[in-house]
Design a protein around this nucleic acid. Structure first.
Lengths: 131, 131
DNA sequence: GTGCATTAGATGCCATTGCATGATTTCTTG
DNA sequence: CAAGAAATCATGCAATGGCATCTAATGCAC
């Protein structure tokens, strides 16, 4: 692939990621007391609509296993999820979203959508995917 | 813009950023002892081919002013750049790349290019930009 | 069943980052 | 010129992340 195109694509990814992450951190944090990672985890659980093993979550979020472990720990401390033992494999841990977790996620979702909308609307973003 | 398209674009940005950053960190780190931020700063200076004010750099890299200050401090400790006083504005600091800095950058550049090439070749990436 | 490799998840440690703030210098206003 | 506002860069601090490692549980080979 042409080197110049790669460089341009990389600059686009870097810029978009930086802008979006920064905005998400600010908006989700100020408005809902959630970090992007916390929201992401809640979002994945809501999306699947069932309790998930930590390892399953690990495949879906772009975090190391250790970072995910800590995010879940923070969420549990905030009572937004609970960690339940897995009866079939006692090493495993199920992460269950609590009612309060659902509420917080539902409240934060429009904020996240709005931020991303804003970012990607501003710059045509991904012309190839955008139709 | 369609909500689904935005979500897809955001997933693309997240995934590409994570994969590329991780690979860059590994390859640049192992092969050349540079982090992505360090390389980025060297690259910007080489690109402009002159000494830059810290603030100018700040506009070009996606780092906070404080993070940039520390990256430059690390680069200085590694003797890859020098911090020179700015005579016209004694608050300012010029960042000059050293000969060794140029050498290291030149050595690392192909690695960076190869990593990005690999990432963006693997998945067609940005069809809209990719031709 | 015993022992060894493997897997799941938690944790110690360290590096990097952003925010708030500090110190110094420059600019602006009167 | 004096005083306060603004700009530039450095630094204290806390949060987050990854790597290596630890513990516990499972699976595999014999």
């Amino acid at each position: 692939m042409d080197e110049h195109v790669v460089a341009e694509a990389w600059r686009y990814v870097l810029a978009t990621h930086a802008k979006a992450m920064c905005a998400l951190e600010r908006e989700l944090g100020d408005r809902h007391g959630l970090g992007p990672s916390e929201f992401e985890v809640l979002d994945r659980i809501v999306h699947h609509d069932r309790k998930l093993r930590l390892q399953e979550l690990c495949d879906e979020v772009h975090l190391s296993q250790s970072a995910l472990s800590r995010v879940v720990a923070r969420l549990e401390k905030a009572a937004l999820v609970s960690r339940d033992a897995c009866s079939s494999d006692r090493r495993g841990v199920f992460v269950c979203i609590t009612p309060e977790g659902r509420t917080r996620h539902a409240a934060a979702l429009p904020t996240q959508r709005a931020v991303l909308q804003e970012i990607f609307a501003g710059a045509p973003a991904l012309p190839g995917l955008a139709r």
